[in-house]
Design a protein around this nucleic acid. Sequence first.
DNA 1: CTAAATTCGGATAAAAATAATCGTATTTTT
DNA 2: AAAAATACGATTATTTTTATCCGAATTTAG
Lengths: 135, 135
Amino acid sequence: MIKLSKKVEYAIMALQYISENSSKTNTAKEIAEKLSLPYDFLSKLLQTLMKKGLLVSQLGVKGGYMLVKQINEITVEDLMNALDERSRIVECADNDGSCCSRTEICDIRSPIMNLQEQINNIFKNTTIANLKNNI
Amino acid sequence: MIKLSKKVEYAIMALQYISENSSKTNTAKEIAEKLSLPYDFLSKLLQTLMKKGLLVSQLGVKGGYMLVKQINEITVEDLMNALDERSRIVECADNDGSCCSRTEICDIRSPIMNLQEQINNIFKNTTIANLKNNI
DNA sequence: CTAAATTCGGATAAAAATAATCGTATTTTT
DNA sequence: AAAAATACGATTATTTTTATCCGAATTTAG
Ligand code: FES
Ligand code: FES
């Protein structure tokens, strides 16, 4: 059950698309069409990225989205933080021990948090540009 | 959405428990009680591990489960393969290109499969023994 | 031989998370 | 004023995960 959410997956594609067309504002509609992604869903997601400061938007006709950073400065972790609700590999891997009734007897909390960190590092070190296929 | 399934999480705990009590067969009931895990669910999961060859079981009274390998020879990847349905980070990261209608225009399939491999490596290199807290 | 403790197996239900959609409001350009 | 966008909130649909239930088969012990 280690998978990227559709939000993150679509966001990667969208950001790459916007990056390729960075001379103009890119509308959600255009991105959705060109990449065959569901418009409403993509639209929401772009709004979220905007709120989180990863995109800027322009309202109204001729509106759309533009990058605020280069895609080699945006990591997969950034997208996961912006778009996904939870990103702990186990519930109990949050900092306070108030996660579950097993805290007392639990042997795995701390080592699993270590595992968590290894995984985080991968996402932290992978930029959206890294995920671009340059055939 | 990068998290371990409960199946895998419980399995880690259960295998560690069995390992600590490897002189006898361990019943699902005992393990569930000692670790405060839901019996039915754990029971199913142990049966699966048995079918996949990670445990041996003995039927009937005095029955239960025993390890077939040491826990330092069992990896998190083994558990994920045995217990989780899907473990691709994106649908499209399977080998044939028949995943979705975007294959033609998709720029991220191959690099994401690379990302996938990095993550797999972590799970492949983490044994159940590694996840044991030795305070 | 019977009863009890177990694993086994299938089916199903409940809960949670993800993905998708809808409707309306607001902003901006022409 | 009309059109083309984003913004926002609510809701629904779908899928996945988690949990439970029931009855059968197996083994041990008395
Ligand atoms: S299971 Fe909750 S602390 Fe480990
Ligand atoms: S989205 Fe299906 S191939 Fe990339």
